[in-house]
């Protein structure tokens, strides 16, 4: 139900460390905002696009992953054509497209586990300040993945109950029961976690 956007593959970009890819994304997102020259932005766009398409995604998968964001960029570019000079619009579109494609390439080549390792490192300073515990973040993440299918099954049961009674399925009549039924489990789940000593309290 909630499968990762990672794609199996052995391209060179798969083998680059996740940290390096995230730093590259950060540098790229800052660097591309400094320049407005199409001579730099066009090659950046073509390189990022080429990289994204070389990862082993079928063209259809590749498009469906970034299609929505690309659509928003193009709509805003069309609006911009009336408001700001054309060369600027071209620069803006190339820059955003390059960034989006590079970001999609990072997402497609980094596993959840590898990402979480980096997140844990980023959380270390906060942990030292006593603001949170990195282990809690992983635990919460695990809980979400564990309970999404359960909550979805509950949603289907509530829609089913609506249908059986001939009621229209409206968000208003579904959200209330769905949230109450789900959050009522919190005490049991918390007790189960503490009973197993997962948080060492």
């Amino acid at each position: 139900m909630l499968t990762s956007l990672y794609v199996e593959g052995g391209s060179w970009f798969h083998r680059v460390a996740v940290r390096a890819k995230l730093i590259a994304l950060l540098v790229l997102s800052l660097g591309l905002f400094v320049t407005n020259s199409p001579l730099l932005l066009l090659p950046a766009f073509l390189l990022c696009g080429g990289l994204y398409l070389s990862l082993g995604l079928t063209p259809r998968q590749a498009l469906s992953r970034v299609g929505f964001v690309v659509f928003t960029i193009l709509v805003l570019a069309a609006v911009n054509l009336f408001l700001i000079p054309v060369p600027e619009v071209v620069a803006l579109v190339l820059r955003l497209m390059a960034l989006v494609l590079f970001a999609a390439a990072v997402t497609a080549t980094a596993t959840i586990g590898a990402f979480m390792d980096e997140v844990t490192i980023l959380l270390k300073p906060l942990e030292r300040l006593g603001l949170l515990r990195a282990a809690d973040v992983s635990l919460a993440l695990g809980l979400v993945l564990r309970f999404v299918p359960d909550i979805f099954a509950r949603y289907e049961a509530i829609s089913e109950a609506h249908r059986a009674r001939g009621l229209p399925i409206r968000p208003l009549t579904i959200i209330g029961p769905l949230i109450i039924l789900t959050l009522k489990d919190a005490d049991t789940i918390a007790a189960a976690i503490d009973a197993r000593g997962f948080r060492r309290q």
Binding site: L139, I151, L178, T182, D187
Partner: peptide, 16 residues
């Protein structure tokens, strides 16, 4: 732990 679970369950509700 209860707060942690409530946070996780609500995030899961938002996914659903």
């Amino acid at each position: 732990t209860r707060d942690l679970v409530l946070v996780a369950l609500f995030a899961a509700i938002v996914v659903v």
